[in-house]
């Protein structure tokens, strides 16, 4: 093949390599720029000298951010939320996906119950009725308010579908052998199905961790007191709403050294650090996950 490539084909192939490389670099440059800003001095950032490498390398922006009590407080809320929320999500996803993976003759209400979950993706009560429900169930300003209300929302329905399709793909004989040995559904689920489903469990676990780390809107509307804000919500108020109300006198003094811009850059980087850390695993699993999800039983 290679030897009889025409000139135009050669040109196309090399042009294609160059284009795709440039495209990938272009996608990352904004993030690299912000990373460089976060390690630069405020004067360098202010004069627009910083491109893709720090100028006057310093850690002062990080020191400033990590000294802010609000930042640390919201980080604590997020850590709790991710640990509690991801394990709770996983537990309930397995408990829903296992029954729904059964044949109709083994679980007669399977189809109506599956529709019961899917219907929530087609129609919703909307923002205000949800807000009122969360309020009426006493979940405002509670950590569970960041976990219960969004459990049944779109992303998790997708996770349920992903998991139940994987469960269905497992050989039926495994379950039957368990049943012959006298195992009930509970034992079959936890002792046979779950240990065999590690790839899909890893995929869904990563999805739910990323989901809980990134979620910000529920924190904004369900938490009235800023000390209950998770990190993403706190960052939203800092990076986007830019409320001067959040800046106290001490902050203003140190802002002269640190500059609002480099401080924001440092917070952007810290806010995306966990995503960057799990990313290598994520991207290994999620292609598999998406392929698994598209195998319809």
């Amino acid at each position: 093949m290679r030897s009889n490539m025409s000139i135009s084909r050669k040109l196309f192939v090399s042009g294609n390599y160059v284009f795709l490389t440039l495209l990938a670099v272009l996608c990352l440059l904004p993030l690299v720029h912000v990373l460089a800003l976060s390690f630069s001095s405020s004067s360098a950032a202010g004069t627009g000298l910083v491109r893709f490498w720090p100028v006057d390398m310093t850690l002062s922006s990080y020191r400033f951010v990590l000294d802010k009590p609000e930042f640390l407080l919201s980080m604590g809320v997020t850590v709790k939320r991710v640990l509690l929320g991801a394990s709770f999500n996983m537990l309930l996803i397995i408990l829903v996906a296992y029954p729904l993976s059964k044949e109709t003759k083994a679980f007669r209400l399977r189809t109506p119950l599956a529709w019961y979950f899917v219907f929530t993706m087609l129609f919703s009560g909307g923002l205000i009725p949800l807000y009122m429900t969360v309020r009426n169930t006493g979940m405002l300003d509670s950590l569970w308010g960041l976990i219960f209300p969004t459990w049944g929302m779109g992303t998790n329905i997708f996770n349920i579908v992903l998991m139940l399709n994987f469960f269905r793909g497992l050989p039926k004989e495994l379950e039957e052998s368990g049943v012959v040995d006298g195992a009930g559904h509970w034992t079959v689920c936890w002792k046979i199905i779950v240990p065999l489903s590690l790839p899909v469990l890893a995929t869904v676990a990563l999805f739910t961790i990323v989901y809980h780390w990134n979620s910000w809107f529920d924190g904004l509307i369900f938490m009235n007191r800023t000390e209950h804000y998770p990190l993403s919500t706190y960052l939203q108020t800092i990076l986007v709403q830019d409320q001067l109300a959040n800046v106290n006198a001490q902050d203003l003094a140190s802002l002269q050294e640190v500059s609002d811009r480099t401080a924001k850059a440092a917070q952007i980087f810290i806010g995306s650090l966990p995503i960057l850390l799990v990313y290598p695993f994520l991207q290994r699993f999620f292609i598999k996950g998406i392929v698994m999800g598209s195998v319809k039983g």
């Binding site: 209400l109 009560g125 009725p129």
Partner: peptide
């Protein structure tokens, strides 16, 4: 067969309840 299915309903119950409270109650809240 319903007896054999009971554990399945117990398993799915928490998820069903949560979706009822936070997806179906808001629909009524319309």
């Amino acid at each position: 067969g319903w007896n054999r299915e009971i554990p399945l309903y117990l398993m799915i119950l928490p998820g069903v309840l949560l979706v009822f409270v936070y997806s179906y109650v808001p629909m009524a809240g319309i």
